[in-house]
């Protein structure tokens, strides 16, 4: 069997390949089932053992070489083909992309969820109550007497005598304490209503109320918890202060201020030149409130706090007109 010249023969055929079709044809004629090598392999069978081994080895070497040659060539032609295709389908990548549709949460919801997230991580559970409340839950039980100015028709929406649109989420405190024994650790988000409608008041707005009642709950705990909240909500470097205040249902009561985010404490119109912004009201639960729900005020203590969601959102996002939240202008909503 003569294999001399085989390599040269293959080489000359391969060098004449000009395109991918030639390549396919030549590949079949060399490596195919009835191709060049098939002949040789048939012939090998006629040789005796020793010769067969040597010749077989030589043929296999040439075959591997041919495989590689044709493989390289195939890759070369494929590359050319791809380049042609890519050239043909060239696009202007600066044309606008097709964005998937997506919606947005209302900024009140965003803020509310943020508040709930922080307090949930501190072990507070969410509690709820009705929007239409009795005067008992909205006022009396919270130590707000019947001749208190907050109960005027000028401030509170009445459904009928004795029934109001809740003016704060604090009634949820009472409902929760009536329904369960201490310990209590809740936050109560929800809509509240007051007879007001101007640049800084809407007749409906949102509040989050918080309440923690247990043995040995201290004013210092209130400070600790609210400091964690404020630093999470407004950033760890936010200055804050607790300032004595008055609420009928807490004592001592504290107003919590944060350093004005507009002027950084220098004084501006927003903070009325004080450098501080009121952010929430809080205090130790008034003993009368405990008596009203039948808790033993000698045994347990607690703190409560409440904040306006719109106010926090306004400070966080720099919104200057509270009514914006309720126009639901798409140009407003799309900013959050």
């Amino acid at each position: 069997m003569d294999i001399s010249g085989l390599k040269e023969k293959i080489d000359s055929e391969v060098s004449r390949i000009g395109n991918i079709e030639d390549l396919k044809r030549v590949k079949v004629s060399i490596l195919g089932r009835k191709g060049l090598f098939a002949d040789y392999i048939d012939q090998l069978k006629t040789l005796d053992k020793d010769l067969r081994r040597d010749a077989g080895k030589a043929i296999n070497e040439i075959k591997s070489w041919a495989d590689v040659r044709l493989g390289e060539l195939e890759k070369h032609f494929n590359d050319i083909e791809r380049q042609k295709r890519e050239q043909a389908s060239l696009i202007d990548i600066t044309m606008p992309g097709t964005t998937p549709v997506f919606g947005k949460k209302h900024p009140i919801t965003l803020t509310l969820e943020e508040i709930i997230r922080i307090f949930a991580s501190l072990g507070f559970a969410v509690a709820e109550g009705p929007d239409i409340e009795t005067e008992f839950y909205n006022f009396e039980s919270l130590n707000i007497p019947s001749d208190h100015p907050a109960r005027d028709m000028q401030d509170t929406f009445y459904i009928r005598p004795g029934v109001v649109l809740r003016t704060h989420t604090s009634p949820v405190q009472i409902r929760t304490m009536e329904a369960q024994l201490p310990p209590v650790k809740i936050i109560a988000p929800g809509s509240v209503y007051r007879c007001d409608n101007d640049i800084s008041h809407t007749p409906m707005f949102h509040q989050v109320e918080g309440l923690m009642v247990d043995k040995n709950v201290r004013f210092s705990d209130l400070k600790g918890i609210l400091s964690i909240f404020i630093h999470d909500m407004f950033g760890p470097d936010t200055p804050l202060r607790f300032r004595p205040s008055y609420f009928p249902f807490t004592e001592p009561s504290a107003e919590v201020d944060i350093g004005c985010v507009i002027c950084r404490g220098q004084g501006c119109r927003v903070c009325k030149d004080t450098g501080w912004l009121e952010i929430l009201g809080s205090g130790m639960v008034h003993p009368q409130v405990f008596r009203n729900v039948g808790y033993d005020q000698e045994e347990i203590t607690g703190f409560a706090f409440g904040m306006g969601v719109e106010r926090i959102a306004m400070i966080k996002f720099g919104i200057d007109d509270i009514r914006q939240f309720y126009y639901n202008d798409i140009r407003f909503l799309s900013q959050f």
Binding site: G123, F124, V217, R218, D221, G224
Partner: peptide
Amino acid sequence: ADIIEEISRIHGFEHIPDTSPVSVLKPQ
């Protein structure tokens, strides 16, 4: 409670420490 309120505001809220409640934190 009214007397404690008076003491607290004269002592100064800024002189009351920030603490964590002693109760066990229960995940919600």
